[in-house]
Design a binder for these strands. Structure first.
Length: 430
RNA sequence: GGAGGGGUGCCUGAGUGGUUGAAAGGGCCGGUCUCGAAAACCGGUGUACCGCAUCGCGGUACCGAGGGUUCGAAUCCCUCCUCCUCCGCCA
């Protein structure tokens, strides 16, 4: 969430930012309401603190008083002070809660260079890299390929777990594992600490990262009778690792590359349902996460984008880079870049489809998760900046590889960089 | 799942109702001593929020989290989280 002080001091620009971000009107109403409540809060805080000061004073005096009669009088005064304070304190507690609840709905500020716009189409294409290959045979999409080569089994996935689930089989398993290895190794080279995270997390952590565990439009599976949810991304668990800690500046940046399963309900996505592996309820993802000083988050964001590009270049997959527009940014993101890989089997003649995404969340997540650092040689603490980025989302990377590397005989060439990890030059042969 | 024992400041670790935001030691920072260093000695060393006569002073909160008892709680009670030991179960 944003800093209340900042919001109060910059109400107009925060309101404009909400509009640029395409948030519903009731969020803007919440902003205005929070501003009004804050004025109330300020006077109430002073009252409550003054009452508590007086209570402390009386309590201390009582302790020191030896004379029984005077002592009894002080106890009486303490009692009445306590009664009087209780009401005001309750009021303050409610007010604090209400302000926080509204504040949480307000999205992060937006990077000045991010394109302003309301829909996906307003995002700015920064560059295209690689040339989609031309095929001299009818192109198949990954669903057909997966079925023909017995690599992906959606029918059985549906039977066992429901629509949106699938079994990976045979060489698809090797491909999945090889991609994980490939990505993790690359990231280790770049100074990231590898981590395999839990697939479940406390709801408080989900909320800190910016997810809404329960409610109508939640994207999250929650565990019955436990305060836990299945994670939609390792961003949740990686960011949560340092919740409620203070880090020495010398330790920064802290970089993790995490592997987790990701679970998404995809509620409300039915209308734009996508074929095959593109939109599924469960997949595996290798995720980057970094904690930095405010000064260096921009540079880290560029690094993450560069790593993502590096991975897809190494895999030999054409892609384009998008600078995501204000209206399409998630709440915590200050700026976001997406990589869209060329998927020859998508649409009529191939289309770009999102495969990775990297966000600079500035201090939006760290404020809620209470992750601070101690600047070298200074008193006090500041909130760190957090960034996340996909290294490889297995489901979608597999789409890109199967479709781009398909051959006329129906089999799949193994991308060169994966050959040593898979041990086969061709995938899908019986 | 059962039984028991813990969670205190950067670390170790005192503290079972009244000037305790918290002893002591360590670490760290500054100083004295020294050609320099070590040792020794002296001093300092939390965070957030609020106010002000704003390089300092005052107030409020914080001893795992949240409630409760009390004039007053790190200290008593309840719930939860978490760690350790033993038993059971188990990949």
């Amino acid at each position: 969430m944003l800093d209340l002080k900042y919001v109060v001091a910059n109400a107009e620009s925060v309101r404009q930012n909400c509009k640029n971000r395409n948030v519903p009107q009731d969020v803007i109403d919440d902003l205005d309401r929070a501003l009004a409540l804050d004025l109330e809060r300020k006077t109430l805080v002073k009252q409550v603190e003054e009452m508590r000061r007086r209570q402390n004073e009386v309590a201390q005096a009582t302790g020191k008083e030896r004379d029984a009669e005077r002592r009894a009088a002080l106890v009486e005064e303490g009692k009445s002070l306590k009664t009087a304070a209780a009401h005001e304190e309750e009021k303050l507690r409610l007010l604090d809660g209400e302000i926080a609840q509204r504040l949480k709905r307000i999205p992060n500020l937006t990077h000045p260079d991010a394109p302003i716009g309301q829909t996906e189409g307003d995002s700015k294409e920064l560059r295209k890299v690689g040339t989609p290959r031309s095929f001299d045979f009818p192109v198949r999409d990954h669903v057909e390929i997966g079925k023909a080569l017995d690599l992906i089994d959606f029918e059985t996935g549906g039977k066992v777990s429901g629509a949106g689930f699938y079994f990976l089989k045979n060489d698809a398993v090797l491909l999945d594992l090889a991609l994980q290895q490939f990505a993790v190794r690359k990231l280790i080279e770049r100074g990231f600490t590898p981590v395999i995270t839990p697939d479940l997390a406390r709801n408080s952590i989900l909320e800190g990262i910016g997810f809404t565990p329960r409610g109508a439009e939640t994207q999250v599976y929650s565990i019955e009778e436990a305060d836990l949810s299945l994670v939609g991304t390792a961003e949740i668990t990686l960011g949560g690792m340092l919740a409620d800690t203070v880090i020495d500046e010398a330790q920064l940046p802290i970089r993790f590359v995490g592997v987790s399963h990701c679970f998404r309900t995809e509620a409300g996505a039915a209308g734009r349902a996508s074929r095959g592996l593109y939109r599924v309820h469960q997949f595996t993802k290798v995720e980057m996460f970094a904690f930095t000083t405010p000064e260096s988050s921009g540079a880290m964001h560029s690094t993450m984008l560069e790593i993502e590009e590096d991975l897809f270049q190494a895999l030999g997959i054409p892609y384009r880079v998008l600078d995501i527009c204000s209206g399409d940014l998630g709440g915590p993101a200050y700026r976001k870049f997406d990589l869209e890989a060329w998927m020859p089997g998508r649409g009529e003649t191939g289309e770009y489809g999102e495969v990775t995404s990297t966000s600079d969340c500035t201090d939006y997540q760290s404020r809620r998760l209470n992750i601070r650092y101690r600047p070298t040689g200074q008193k006090g603490t500041r909130f760190v900046h957090t960034l996340n980025g996909t290294a490889v989302a297995l489901s979608r990377a597999i789409i890109a590889i199967l479709e781009n590397y398909q051959r006329g005989d129906g089999l799949i060439d193994t991308p060169d960089v994966l050959k040593p990890l898979i041990g086969k030059d061709v995938l899908g042969a019986k």
